[in-house]
């Protein structure tokens, strides 16, 4: 289960990525943040952001809140 949820539903690219980039440095290393984002570009851009920033992309899931993406702060 994620440690916290970042609700970016209704936001267009690149806003969900910007929201994740703002939040990650504020959480302790090891924290898993679940990003809720219904913009289809998030499915491409959140994993790409993790790769570029050396953070860990855990999984893309579709739950009751729509598409969601789990990211772990690794550094």
């Amino acid at each position: 289960m994620p440690d916290e949820v970042l609700d970016c539903r209704g936001q267009r690219c690149p806003l969900p990525v910007i929201a994740a980039a703002r939040r990650m440095p504020q959480v302790p290393v090891g924290t898993v943040v679940r990003v809720l984002a219904d913009d289809p570009a998030a499915a491409v851009d959140l994993p790409a952001w993790c790769r570029m920033r050396g953070q860990e992309f855990l999984a893309a899931i579709t739950g009751p809140d729509g598409p969601a993406y789990d990211i772990r702060r690794t550094h």
Partner: peptide, 21 residues
């Protein structure tokens, strides 16, 4: 995606797994 009429990112960038915005 914001430049396409369907608001979907390019299927090419998506298939490559690279940043689309």
């Amino acid at each position: 995606s914001c430049t396409s009429s369907t608001l979907r990112p390019s299927h090419v960038l998506e298939a490559m797994g690279v940043l689309s915005h």
